[in-house]
C-alpha cells in the first residue's frame, strides 16, 4: 500500500465524512464511497492512488474496492488535471445546437485538444456524455457550475474571466 500519511482531510471535511457514513445502516459504510470520493476530488483535484488508499482507510474497505469504483465512474479523474476542468457535452442534442463549433472554438482558444491540459496547468478539457441540460445546450460544466446556451462569444468571456 502507498504511504497515505501526508494525505488527510481538514477537520471539517472529516466531520462531514462521518456524518455521511451515518446515513447508512451499521456496517454499510461502503455506501459512502461515491460521496467521499467526490469530497476527495474536490480537495486534491484528482483521485491519485494515494488519495484512493486514504479513502479506503477512512471507510475501512480494501483499496481495490475504491479503485474498481473510481475507474468505473466518468467523473473521477485518474490522472492529474488542471485547475479548471472543462467538461463539455458531446451528445446529440448539444450537437444540434451548434456544440461542435463551440467546442472547436474552445479547443482553439486554449490551444489544446480534448484530454489535454494547458501548459500553465490552468485548464483541462474533457468531453463527456449528456449532462441533462439538452434544452439549454450547448453545455459544459466546470466543477459544480453549469454553463449553458454557449456561443463562441460566451466561451471567450468565460475563459477570459477564469484566466484572470
Amino acid at each position: 500500500m502507498t504511504n497515505t500519511q501526508t494525505i488527510q482531510f481538514p477537520a471539517d471535511t472529516l466531520e462531514l465524512v462521518h456524518k455521511i457514513i451515518n446515513r447508512y445502516p451499521e456496517g454499510k459504510q461502503k455506501s459512502a464511497l461515491l460521496p467521499v470520493l467526490h469530497l476527495a476530488q474536490a480537495e486534491w483535484r484528482w483521485c491519485s492512488p494515494e488519495v484512493m488508499d486514504y479513502v479506503a482507510s477512512l471507510l475501512n474497505i480494501k483499496p481495490i474496492e475504491v479503485y474498481e469504483v473510481a475507474t468505473f465512474y466518468t467523473m473521477f479523474h485518474l490522472e492529474p488535471v488542471g485547475e479548471h476542468v472543462i467538461e463539455y457535452c458531446r451528445t446529440g442534442p448539444c450537437c444540434l445546437m451548434g456544440g461542435v463549433e463551440v467546442y472547436d472554438h474552445l479547443k482553439k482558444k486554449l490551444g489544446i485538444e480534448t484530454g489535454e491540459t494547458t501548459a500553465d496547468g490552468k485548464f483541462t478539457i474533457k468531453e463527456v456524455e449528456c449532462l441533462a441540460a439538452c434544452g439549454w445546450g450547448p453545455v459544459f460544466q466546470i466543477r459544480e457550475k453549469y454553463y449553458m446556451n454557449l456561443t463562441t462569444e460566451k466561451v471567450d468571456e468565460i475563459i477570459d474571466e477564469l484566466s484572470k
Binding site: 455506501s31 461515491l34 471507510l59 474496492e65 469504483v69 467523473m75
Partner: peptide, 19 residues
C-alpha cells in the same frame, strides 16, 4: 459518479451500495 447505467434501478442500488 457519472454513469448512465445507474439510471437502471438495480445498477442504481449497486451504486448506492458503493459499488
Amino acid at each position: 459518479g457519472g454513469a448512465y447505467i445507474c439510471g437502471e434501478e438495480t445498477a442504481l442500488l449497486e451504486s448506492l451500495e458503493g459499488k
